[in-house]
């Protein structure tokens, strides 16, 4: 069976690409430290020597729209184009292209459906920065095939937080039951406290540092019980109007497992939002 080589949870900050590729005289003052932290985080994936990446993210009204909105969707295609005109326009992100790992997509869909998760699928999916940002930060050579998994954290009515955790658990089971000798890393990105298009946006730090500290503690310690006891669809409005993206972190806690302490934790307090980086090695840290 396939081996779960690493579980990685991260924020996805669309400004990283521009900040990290700007000439030194034009780079923002926080860029050098940001690059250092990202390169250190990247090493945690490199060391795991993955062959395949399962990428959990959320479409930001690019291909998925309100006339036909899936809650959880698995890409099932040989190839994926990526990034959109408005992401080039606002963030300077490049157009990208990725190979798909179709047999793993098919395995996840068939067995996920049989495990009572009514997953939607797409045979032609153009993916967005929720998946390409972690490729840029963690695997910039973009040389590995992927299985994209999209969650709806964006267009209410949303699934309950516990469903994200449950899906994470199922994804882990399905990766570990995939008849293959490949090493799989599951990478998911979300947000800590975040406000977009509201009065608390683009402040000197994230809109709710207290929530961020608590969230980092939950994730670092795999404290699903504590997290699920406090986080509800309603409660997530308080830290910032885009904080429902935290549920993708909860999904990744489900992949990592109850009380699984992260092997690597780092954060970076930026303007607008806090960056947070976590890695687990379910089968022990690589040598």
């Amino acid at each position: 069976m396939a081996e779960l080589a690493a579980v990685i949870a991260s924020t996805h900050h669309p400004f990283y690409y521009k900040a990290s590729t700007a000439p030194p005289d034009q780079a923002p003052p926080f860029a050098a430290e940001w690059v250092r932290k990202v390169e250190s985080f990247r090493e945690t994936l490199t060391r795991a020597e993955p062959d395949v990446l399962v990428m959990v993210g959320s479409d930001h009204f690019h291909q998925l729209w309100l006339d036909n909105m899936p809650q959880f969707l698995v890409g099932n295609a040989e190839e994926y184009d990526a990034n959109w005109y408005n992401e080039e326009r606002e963030f300077g992100l490049p157009r990208m292209h990725m190979r798909g790992q179709r047999d793993l997509s098919t395995h996840i869909l068939r067995n996920g459906l049989d495990a009572d998760f009514d997953l939607a699928f797409s045979n032609e999916l153009r993916i967005d920065h929720s998946v390409t940002c972690p490729i840029i930060t963690l695997r910039p050579q973009n040389d590995l095939p992927i299985v994209p998994v999209y969650t709806n954290i964006f267009a209410p009515p949303l699934p309950q937080p516990k469903r994200f955790v449950q899906l994470g658990r199922v994804i882990r089971q399905l990766v570990e039951s995939w008849p293959s000798d490949q090493r799989v890393a599951v990478i998911g990105t979300g947000h800590l406290s975040l406000e977009l298009g509201g009065p608390r946006q683009f402040g000197p730090h994230g809109p709710d540092p207290e929530f961020d500290a608590k969230a980092v503690d939950w994730i670092s310690n795999g404290d699903l019980e504590g997290c699920l006891s406090e986080v509800t669809l309603d409660s997530l409005h308080a830290p910032g109007n885009a904080t429902h993206g935290f549920m993708d972190f909860m999904l990744m806690m489900g992949v990592a497992g109850e009380n699984a302490k992260a092997d690597y934790v780092d954060t970076y307090d930026l303007f607008h939002t806090m960056e947070a980086y976590f890695t687990w090695y379910p089968n022990g840290a690589p040598a």
Binding site: F61, N86, R89, L196, G197
Partner: peptide, 16 residues
């Protein structure tokens, strides 16, 4: 914003 338009859509377009 007051009428509940999706804030991400409004923000993105108005930035553009």
């Amino acid at each position: 914003f007051a009428m509940g338009a999706h804030p991400f859509l409004t923000l993105t377009l108005f930035i553009a």
